[in-house]
Amino acid sequence: MAVAVAPAPLSETAPVGLKEVQAPVADDLEAFRQHFREAMQSRVRLLDTVVSYLLKRKGKQIRPTLVLLSAQLTGGITDRSYRAAALIELLHTATLVHDDVIDESDTRRGVASINALWKNKVGVLLGDYLLSRGLLLALDDGDYDLLHITSDAVRRMSEGELLQLETARRLDMTEERYFRIIGDKTGSLIASCMAAGAASAGADDETVARAKAIGETIGLAFQIRDDLFDYDAVGAASVGKPVGLDLQDRKMTLPLILALDRASDADRKRIRRIVKKRKKSRAQTDEVVRFVSESGGLAAARARMEELAADAASEIRSFPASPARDALVGLCAFVVARKR
């Protein structure tokens, strides 16, 4: 049963790095990695070569961390928790591989992408293989509840991507639609991490739903932080992303939406004309970036991100005190303060 705790502002949380967030589940993350490696094994030499390359780029492993912390928060880590973390990481990795093929990306986080090294056909087939391994991992052990949680997230991610494509063609993005898109694209997967972790620990349906809602809120803040990088030269460089990349793709994210809401009719028309262009000069991109900053759109988006992260931290504090609870509150602070 949840214990009511007086919420503290997120700004009062001491800054933490990802290493501190992962500390309560450091040993469990090592056990997860073993499950993950075993789940990706294949008897096909080419597939093993590509998978080995993927495993060397393990990344920050935020999602497995969330699964394990959620399990620890709501009942305790079990073997199902490791499978839940591996299932989500398999599905997440599959979507990243497919995204690189769709976007024709040569790099991911500054490292050559799978499709750049082995071409699109291998990239598509690898993504399909990872999806199938995730499904089998859940089915072989009868983890139908975990499969339902993650499958719903994949459905929402696909719908979010398609809605964003549809909106980019028409350039009719509203704040409401933006939050629907990022809720589906990013919030759903983070929500599934928290929900799967709680379910793997044997939590009741109400607790699983609470964990899922917290994860969705964290995911919204996480995506807004990513979108802010597009208007921040220092932040964008640290994630290997040029400033204005979203603008080049005609993606209208929260900083721009809020800036346009505050603009005069003349400025709104001028900026929309630039955004509509399929190809923009560096000067035009810089003009939009400057407009977003000077109009207050950047500050307003940052405030919205911090509010969401604070809401998630407040909900997490309603659980009984534990290292996992503290780590998850720290993760909320990390999400808004991260540089990459």
Rank of each mutant, 00 (worst) to 15 (best):
A310I: 03
R317W: 00
L117A: 14
V67M: 05
G110M: 06
A333K: 15
L254Q: 09
N115K: 05
R325F: 06
D265K: 08
Y178S: 06
V154T: 12
L260G: 06
L331K: 08
K60W: 07
D140I: 00
A213P: 01
A312Q: 04
I102G: 04
V111E: 13
P24W: 00
D267E: 03
A266H: 07
E38C: 00
V335M: 01
D128K: 07
G215Q: 08
K280L: 09
S52Y: 00
L165Y: 09
D48C: 06
V292K: 05
F319P: 01
T150V: 12
A324C: 11
A2R: 15
A233L: 08
F32K: 09
P15H: 10
F222I: 02
A300G: 07
R177I: 15
T49R: 12
L126Q: 00
M252Y: 06
V25Y: 07
P64R: 02
Q164W: 03
R273P: 09
K279A: 14
E315P: 02
R304Q: 09
F334A: 01
H35V: 12
A283S: 14
S293P: 07
R225A: 04
A112N: 13
I190N: 14
D100R: 14
P15K: 11
A6V: 15
A301N: 07
K280D: 12
Y53L: 13
E306F: 02
D204T: 12
G235W: 00
L90H: 02
R169W: 04
N120L: 00
L130M: 07
L131K: 05
S151P: 08
F291M: 05
R80T: 06
V124H: 09
D28R: 09
L136D: 14
E294F: 03
V234D: 14
T78P: 13
G76L: 03
S295D: 12
R210H: 14
D141F: 07
R57A: 15
S318Y: 00
S314M: 02
E161W: 03
P7W: 00
G142N: 07
A112E: 13
G142S: 11
R33N: 12
V336C: 10
A116I: 07
V208T: 15
R109V: 04
Y82F: 10
D143K: 11
L228W: 04
S81I: 00
L189G: 08
A301H: 01
V335K: 05
A112S: 14
A236L: 02
I88S: 10
D261M: 06
R317A: 04
I114S: 05
S318A: 09
D172C: 07
K58T: 13
A337R: 15
V101A: 08
S81G: 13
A2S: 14
D249L: 05
Q34T: 15
G296C: 04
A259Q: 11
R170D: 12
L260F: 04
A259H: 11
I114C: 11
E161P: 08
A168K: 15
P242A: 02
V51R: 04
P320R: 10
M173C: 13
A198M: 04
A198V: 04
